[in-house]
Each structure stands twice: as C-alpha cells, then as structure tokens.
C-alpha cells in the first residue's frame, strides 16, 4: 500500500509538467467552452474552422520562434516583418511581377531582415532582444514609409486563394499552410542535426562550442527561419485581407512568444517543442473565440487571456519545482 503511494508520487514527480501542461489546459478550455457555449454553436465545424483560420498565422510564426527560443534567443521583429512583407508582395503584384514575383518579394523581405538580425546577433554580438527590438521599429517604419501608410489592394485571385482566403472543399488553405509548417518544423527540430545543434546551443552554448557546433551559424539560421516564417505570415495576411497594410501583425510578436512558452519551450533555451507551440497557439485562439462568443468586449478578453497565460505557465513551473 505504502509503496504504491510512493510510486504514484514519484510518477507525478517524473512527469514533465512543463511539457504537458499546455495539452491539459487546452483540453480543459475546450471542454469548458463546449459545455457552456454548446448552444451558442462553439462546437460547430464552422466555428472550429474559424479558430484554425484565426490562429494559423500565429502558429506558423510560432514554429520558427520555437527554434529561436530553443537557441536561447528572441525575435521581437516578426510582427513588423509580416507587415512589411504583406506590402512588398502586394506591391510586386501591383507592379505586374505576378505571383512568383510576389512570393520572392514577400519571402525575400523576411529572409533579408532575418539575415540582418542574425548577423547583428552573431557578428556584432548584440543581444537579440535589443537587435530585434530595434529592428521591430525599423521594419515597421519601412512598412509605413514604402506607401506612405496607404494600403495596397490585391486583385490577383490566385494569390488571394493560395495565401489565406481560399478553401479546398470545406477546408481553409490556411490549415494546409499550418500543417506544412508544423510537420516540417517538428521534423527539423527533432530529427535533423541542425535541430539537435539548435537545442544544444540553447542548452549550453559553451558546451556546444566545445563539441564542435558552429554556434554562430546555428543562431544565424534560426533568425533566417524566423524571418522566413514572418515573411510567409505577411503574405498570408495579404491574401486573407486582399491587401498589404502596415498595421498587419501588430502585437503578433507577443502572441507568438506566448504560444511558444505556453507550449513548453523553455525561455532559457535548450528545451523546445513545435507541437506544443501549435497547441499553445490554438489554446490562445480558442480562448479568444470563446470569450467573443460569450460576449465579452475586447478589454475583458485581454484581461482574461493574460491571466490564463500567466496561470498556465505558473502551474507548469510550480509543478516541476516540486
């Protein structure tokens, strides 16, 4: 009897709470809204697809941010990159460069800014918090400047369909983008040498270096990945909203970071999970959706959302420290 009790406590102790808290919390939130908002149609296919549409962009940027944070760095410029990319791809279309030109412009914008971030962090050795904080302003400024804050409309139907507005049957194209990002991200983090080196770099930069890992190059790559994902996110905004606009992605950096940390990735680096990030993002989206259906106004939504994030992370922490 006694040994059984101690077994179960040791199971609780070994159980990695930080890693799994988000799944438990997500299921809790789902059940809660399913029960309380059943009559309001929370569980309808339509509403579920809505949640997926609303969270796709955060999830995609979250996949790349998982790498950045796993490497013990941070990227605050993703929201601004998305804004600038939405504009550059819209402008490319407007100037007649076609879909291919728009993709090059959108992704190129993201990669370029990611490259600058990465070089500043690894060659000039400035902490990524400062580099990307500065770059957030620079990029946002550029986005406002290129069209003098005017939105750029998109009339190319194929672009709009591919990047965010289309549905295949009942299923939004955004879901495919999200799935692609998650599958690729998960495999790269778990199953490639680059993924392992990223985690080693974040876990102990010194030991990684002493083990022959090119720490600078690894970091440069994670910033490139983050820029790339933010560029894609910008194109998805553009496709969904039929335009490029400097206001897109505003505040997304915080939602993205929240999704990553909520998902179980350590803010100190070395531990990361792409699947967790997506669940984190879905959970934030579900809470948003549920609160809107409940009729809370934006201010109340923000308060509840913030509290839930703090609680979830605190619970995960507390449980591991025990």
């Amino acid at each position: 009897m006694q040994s059984k009790a101690s077994n179960s406590t040791s199971f609780l102790k070994d159980f990695n709470w930080r890693q799994y808290i988000v799944y438990i919390a997500f299921i809790g939130v789902l059940i809660y809204f399913s029960v309380t908002l059943f009559d309001e149609g929370f569980l309808t296919t339509n509403n579920i697809l809505n949640i997926i549409r609303q969270t796709a962009i955060i999830s995609i940027m979250g996949v790349a941010m998982t790498f950045v944070i796993s490497a013990a760095e941070i990227d605050l410029s993703v929201g601004s990159i998305a804004a600038l990319s939405s504009l550059t791809s819209a402008m490319a279309l407007e100037s007649g460069f076609g879909i291919f030109g728009a993709i090059v412009a959108g992704l190129g914008t993201g990669l370029l800014i990611g490259l600058v971030n990465g070089l500043l962090v690894t060659k000039v050795i400035i902490p990524s918090f400062l580099v990307t904080l500065g770059m957030m302003g620079v990029t946002k400024g550029l986005a406002m400047w290129v069209t003098n804050t005017a939105p750029v409309p998109i009339i190319n139907e194929t672009f709009v369909f591919l990047f965010g507005s289309g549905d295949i049957g009942n299923i939004p194209v955004l879901l495919f983008w999200t799935l692609a990002a998650v599958v690729i991200g998960h495999i790269v983090l778990r199953k490639t040498a680059f993924g392992r080196r990223t985690l080693a770099t974040g876990g102990n930069q010194n030991a990684a270096r002493f083990s022959g890992v090119n720490v600078s190059r690894t970091k440069l790559y994670v910033f490139l990945a983050s820029g790339f994902a933010a560029g894609l996110a910008g194109m998805l905004y553009a496709g969904r909203m039929h335009s490029g606009r400097y206001t897109f992605g505003e505040g997304d950096e915080l939602s993205v970071i929240a999704a990553v940390i909520l998902g179980g990735t350590s803010l100190f680096g070395g531990v990361g999970t792409v699947i967790g990030t997506v669940i984190g993002s879905l959970m934030i989206g579900t809470i948003n959706n549920g609160l809107i259906i409940m009729g809370l106004d934006v201010s109340q939504q923000m308060i509840v959302k913030g509290l839930i994030i703090i609680l979830a992370v605190a619970f995960g922490r507390k449980a591991i420290s025990k």
Binding site: L199, A207, G270
Partner: peptide, 13 residues
C-alpha cells in the same frame, strides 16, 4: 558542467 555537457539534456544527446 560548463564546457563539457548540456546538463539538461539526455545522456544520449
């Protein structure tokens, strides 16, 4: 501890 191992990672990694 500082240069040899990523202490939070598994023995295998």
């Amino acid at each position: 501890r500082v240069q040899g191992l990523v202490l939070e990672h598994q023995v295998m990694d």
